[in-house]
Amino acid sequence: MTDTLSPATTGATGRRAPSAGNLLPIIGVVVAAVAVVLPILVDDFAFNYLMSYTVITCILALTMHLLMGLAGVFSLGQAAMFGAGAYAAVVIIGQTGIDGTLGLFLVAAVGAVIGILMGLVTLRTTDLYLALTTLAFGYIVENLVRNSDWLGGPQGITGFDITFAGSYLDEPKLLYWVGLGFLYLLIVIIMSVRRSKVGRALMATRESPIAARSIGIDTRRYKLLAFGVAGAFAAVAGGLYTAYALVVDPSVFGIDLTLSVLAIAIVGGLRSMPGIIVVAIVLTYFRNSAETFGASQYVLLIYGLLIVLTLRFLPQGLGGLLTSPRVLAATRSIRARFHGGTQ
């Protein structure tokens, strides 16, 4: 068939869709392997705990990546699933005595159910209304827990042990490795999903729900799927947090947590998994060590500042830099020069 529609401009000057360089997968695998042996290299009890907390934060931040970045659902309700997971872990593993190898998957199931419930409740809303409804959902769950005597009411529950494969998770290395395992599982799932049918369906749902439906994508189903997966992993993060904090109380539902993880996700780039992971590590370490930098008074100020500056100058977050045309052009020219020099 002939085609005289407007002529194609050549691709070379145009903005291309992001594509990963060949080096990235190798770097990723090396970093992942180093992360596994890190607690053996740096053998410090408290620091290993900090590492496990960082991993927990990474999991929670990536659930936001999944929901907001991939599915385009601006949900502020992740604390509901995180908190529900925390309580579920204490009840299922700590009190009922089911080992974490099975128990954490039950916790994930609880999180998935609550995530889907939240999805159902908020399905008809979008944007700001969705953000507010999900936030309200979190408050509702918090209030239910606060008023449940069997969950310890406002004081919460103390004096429990979270076990995994028969060992207590108050051993920070083990907690770190278990967390890392779930983090890697989530990373594999997100990477697979992004390159598959579901990823395209989520993309379509995010970019244009009307168009998505016109090509046979049940947008509600995929939104619920995103809520479910994000809920499952947020709950696991919550469950692991109880092993870190040794207690669980209604503060796990707090808005502070949502906001600091949201800051991580925005600064890292909602669409960028590596960006979010790097920022999660840096900000968690920074916040914990803010005192040594003499910056603890300014932590929240700095968080806010980072969000404002990111939204102003890097709307795609730090991760957006990886795929920004200027940076890509710069790497290309460096690579070309490098090759020219060696050959």
Binding site: R16, A17, I210, S214, G216
Partner: peptide, 26 residues
């Protein structure tokens, strides 16, 4: 509409409904 589409009724829109920030191939 998604059900219609899955039965084999595809459509375009008067005002274009594309996935703007994605590649043509995607």
């Amino acid at each position: 509409s998604f059900h219609m589409a899955s039965l084999g009724m595809a459509r375009s829109f008067q005002t274009s409904q594309l996935f703007e920030e994605e590649s043509v191939l995607s």
